[in-house]
Write a protein that binds this DNA or RNA. Structure first.
Lengths: 148, 148
DNA sequence: AGGCTTTTCCTACTTTAGTATGAGAACTTT
DNA sequence: AAAGTTCTCATACTAAAGTAGGAAAAGCCT
């Protein structure tokens, strides 16, 4: 939580600074309004991306323990199985993308991670699922109801 | 990738529009700079959220295999589909093995063929299914009921 | 018999995947 | 605050996968 708080703190500071600069330059009139607006836009666009990225991460972590009503309908992820295999949240995320047929590079892009990181996760997944290839891992994962 | 291009196009339009408004108000001098910057920031923050949200949805949308309802006996190979795609018998054989998570070498052994031959078949399968990787081909094949 | 498709196989590459190892940052738990 | 996990990323390889292009044998069709 600390980094996020710090991040938002800096953000607010940034915002205040922008306003300050904006005001000063507004008086002096030597910097185009467009530039200020553009900078603000860019910063907040990135902030939007960042914010959403982190909030989604949090959401995907809370999901597992929620389904208490379901009477095991045809297709539901077996979280017990995941726990039993020792798969972590991130590994499961990667596994889902793998099952969609994405390459390591594409998974990295989708999850905002480097290909190296994906390779590490994939390697761990293969080990934990006792698979030799990603295709086999997907096959096993589907049979174990780890992915849909 | 088209949606992304369109998205950025709209984004740029939005930006230009903002500048236009900014300039007009700058001349009239009846709106505070802070307000403009704040609006720009807010808009692009939302755009950031929206953009990220959609890029993530797109990727995970390929999933729903929609468990066919009653009329089709839950799981049967759609031979019409196979014919439609121009897949030959041998290619389908290989596709099935691919879906089981076998390597090219293993498929070759299973079908009494050389690895070279399997590679040729796999390459043709990928082309006919419009897939880039075998994992993707398997995903597509399962959705199209070409393999179980 | 000649044309067409399928199947098989090869060489020579290019590109992804996967392994091994190490390491730092972040989060959780104690 | 210290310890254990998880997550991230990197380098350096090794091993599969996939591409391109060619080629020959076998079966089908009319």
């Amino acid at each position: 939580m600390r980094p996020i708080i710090i991040g938002f703190g800096l953000l607010i500071l940034c915002l205040l600074l922008l306003f300050r600069i904006g005001e000063v330059n507004f008086i002096k009139g030597d910097v185009k309004l467009e530039v200020i607006v553009a900078i603000a836009a860019l910063i907040f666009f990135l902030v939007g991306l960042f914010f959403n990225y982190h909030s989604q991460k949090k959401i995907s972590q809370v999901q597992p323990p929620s389904p208490a009503i379901a009477d095991t309908p045809t297709s539901v992820i077996d979280y017990e199985q995941i726990k039993k295999l020792g798969l972590t949240q991130r590994e499961h995320d990667v596994l889902v993308k793998m099952a969609e047929g994405l390459s390591n590079q594409e998974i990295g892009t989708a999850l905002f991670l480097s290909e190296s990181t994906i390779k590490t996760h994939v390697s761990n997944i293969l080990f934990k699922l006792d698979a030799k290839r990603r295709t086999q891992a997907v096959q096993i994962a589907k049979q174990l109801k780890i992915v849909l």
